[in-house]
Design a protein around this nucleic acid. Structure first.
Lengths: 231, 231
DNA sequence: CGCCTGCTGACAGTTTATGGCAGCAGCGTT
DNA sequence: AACGCTGCTGCCATAAACTGTCAGCAGGCG
């Protein structure tokens, strides 16, 4: 069977993903159960197939930013869902992510059978107000701050036009109709507050990591809500 | 290089996708430039890897509903977009598609690095009214009707509670906040009309194909709109 | 019944993959 | 500068796989 080698390459890729720091070829060879010489050949194969693997003498191997998904079976329905979702992202998310959604869509479309591609093109509409890209704030940076549990300093104007500066602990980004909302713990008010991204005048991500876990904050916030929200 | 065989299998898959009707092994063997015996082995390989290929004696081979996407490179951002999109679908689309979105999400999550998986789990919320699954209508059937350009017979109650029966030519499905809307040409009014899926009392998809092209209807409808809508 | 087609087994020839060995080059530390 | 670690490449013999040809059986269709 030809499965042996392909599977090994996949394992290799996954192993490289697991490690964040450089890994030596020897380690990888052991993990995939193969000789060092063959490992070098495998790496070469993966690189030839487009994987962004960087090797440096004296250091080891690192998988660069791109991710290669292993071949996956998607049912027709799942594909439809992926396509619909990507189109929504392309329309509703902030410009950077929206662009990524469009790119992903293009990649998927490229491998779709012709008749399905046509369907995808035009059978669905997203009606309603378009995303406001008037956000002065960099929503991608906010996502990153959430992911890394960083303190966020906001220069914010509320609905009454009052301007304030505050330090908050962002733990989630919410999509509400056509606006995006940061869920956060506010140091000023000592309570949960939410902030529309389009009302942010200016912001800065601190290097400081806030002292609570993002997931815990989310859980506590959920308990303060009357209406249960789904993730 | 090990590319030879893998590439051939991919070609085989794509070829099978191209054909709608059963294809004989001989033809496939010629197209992939390989002997008949090897083709049988290739088919067996693909089946072993999960491809739903059906062969019937005296008929030929057909690729069943599942689609196998070739390996693809997604950037971190594109992955984020795919995940966000899938989560939106899982929440906002009709039950059947929503389930497919959740399934796709699970498949993607399975190959993601651990730290990214955690982020994906909980950093995004979809606030607002949840999808109404009170649709009596089968939205999947509506999608299919649009795709196949079938006449749809609606038993519909409008906002004033007036109930009507009409034959329409559906050409697009729109997402408007939390409701879904069918865009269609109404035979009764001889004009474009839209119908909320949650107001459909009953419906039937006719075997008849309506006499216009879906894409043309969409184009004409767009021209009647004051506000340009994006696809 | 005969034809077309899918499917499997066996065998030999060819190709490919693998591992061990040797050697060169780049990086960091001593 | 010297040393160790590591990536990288070439060569070669062996093992594994892939492939084509030939043969035969079984199932749909006319």
């Amino acid at each position: 069977m030809p499965v042996a080698r392909s599977e090994r390459l996949l394992t290799l890729l996954q192993t490289l993903r697991r490690y964040r720091r450089p890994v030596t070829g020897t380690v990888l060879a052991e993990e995939t159960g193969v000789s060092l010489r063959t490992l070098y050949r495998d790496i070469a194969s993966l690189q030839a197939q487009g994987a962004m693997i960087e090797g440096e003498a004296g250091i080891g191997y690192v998988l660069k930013p791109g991710f290669m998904l292993p071949p996956m079976m998607f049912s027709e329905e799942e594909l439809e869902a992926l396509v619909l979702g990507s189109r929504w992202v392309a329309r509703a998310a902030e410009p950077r992510l929206a662009g990524a959604g469009a790119d992903a869509l293009a990649k998927i479309a490229a491998v779709l059978p012709a008749d399905m591609r046509e369907t995808i093109d035009s059978a669905t509409l997203f009606v309603g107000r378009k995303r406001q890209d008037e956000d002065k704030a960099d929503v991608s940076a906010i996502r990153k701050a959430i992911r890394l549990e960083r303190v966020l300093e906001l220069h914010y104007g509320d609905e009454q036009g009052r301007i304030s500066r505050r330090r908050v602990w962002p733990f989630a980004l919410g999509y509400f109709e056509h606006v995006r909302i940061i869920m956060a713990w506010c140091e000023l008010r000592q309570d949960f507050r939410h902030f529309r991204t389009d009302r942010i005048i200016d912001m800065a991500v601190h290097e400081t990591r806030y002292p609570r876990r993002r997931t815990v904050l989310l859980k506590e916030w959920r308990e303060t809500q009357d209406v249960p929200m789904e993730s």
